[in-house]
Simulated scan of single mutants.
Amino acid sequence: MPDGWQWDRTLFRGSAAHYARGRLPYAPGFPETLAGALGLDGRGRLLDVGCGPGTVLLPMARFFAEVVGVDPDEDMLAEARRQAGRRGVTHARWVAARAEDLPAGLGEFRAVVFAQSFHWTHRDRVAAVVREMLEPGGAFVHVSELQDPPPAPAPPPSPAPPYERIRELVRRYLGPVRRAGQGVLVDGTPGGEELVVARAGFVHFARHVVPGGDVVTRTTDDLVAWTFSRSDAAPHLFGDRREEFERDLRALLEETAPGLHPFAERLPATEIRIWRKPPERGRA
């Protein structure tokens, strides 16, 4: 976990309702890329730690006999159940727990995935526990947007979302230091997953990048949802000024794209990093 910060239940409080609409999807084809990299055949079990509303778990469900999503936020799990019902995913199980509560009697898995959630955990402890939960040769998987991507071509004439101006507005309301639950993140969230996972005894690192690039349009409502889906701008952080903040946010977006004109941006590439649990001695 970030130095000087303690997790609390308000980290994403109120964000679940905005997540599916506000967050950009991972790049098309990421489930097939991950399934191919892991040699999935419809058997085995998947554990998604910090699953949120099922963003990764649900597209991956068809490649496993059972999928289990773990998240401490009950609202996120409720949204995941709704999304599973819409998709017809009937072999998913949802567990209200933190990563630090594992193994929680959940059994053995072929793969355990963290989709931009590992940095919120006690990483060394969690990585060591996950290693014990994996079958021999099982995979520890980290999914995220590609970090530091090469410059992308400009989107069509529609304006790009004014993300930096949105962040400036959030800082005006919540202060210059990033908020996270009841605390703050002075230095942001930690990186260096490679070292943490290696310390836990995982081997055979592999990296896959799934290209993005498709142009997606974003409405004002989409960008309001994006803002409230973030831990540093979760609705509860604004207290009794939430409606005032949303009015200012919508005015900012209207100024950038007057009338009904949508915003446009290119879908980022998705980065998949995979480490393996060593096979048992005497087994290939």
Rank of each mutant, 00 (worst) to 15 (best):
P162R: 05
R165A: 15
R165T: 00
I166C: 03
I166R: 03
R167H: 12
E168D: 15
E168L: 13
L169W: 07
L169D: 04
L169H: 07
L169P: 01
V170W: 01
P176T: 12
V177N: 06
R179G: 04
A180Y: 05
G181N: 06
G181D: 04
G183L: 03
V184H: 11
L185M: 05
T189I: 09
G191E: 13
G192Y: 09
L195G: 15
V203H: 08
H204N: 12
H204F: 00
A206S: 14
H208Q: 06
V209K: 04
P211M: 07
G213V: 10
T217A: 13
T219N: 04
T220P: 02
D221Y: 03
D221H: 05
D222H: 15
D222G: 05
V224C: 06
A225T: 01
W226D: 05
W226M: 09
T227H: 04
T227F: 08
R230H: 11
S231I: 07
S231C: 12
S231L: 12
S231A: 12
D232Y: 14
D232M: 06
D232L: 00
A233D: 04
P235Y: 10
P235E: 11
H236Y: 10
F238G: 04
D240Q: 13
R241S: 12
R241F: 00
R242Y: 11
E244S: 14
F245P: 02
F245K: 03
F245N: 00
F245R: 02
E246D: 12
E246Q: 14
R250F: 11
A251R: 15
A251G: 11
L252N: 08
E255Q: 14
E255N: 11
P258Q: 10
P258C: 11
G259L: 10
L260S: 15
H261G: 13
H261S: 14
F263A: 08
R266S: 08
E271N: 05
I272L: 15
R273W: 00
R273P: 02
I274R: 02
W275M: 00
R276I: 08
R276F: 09
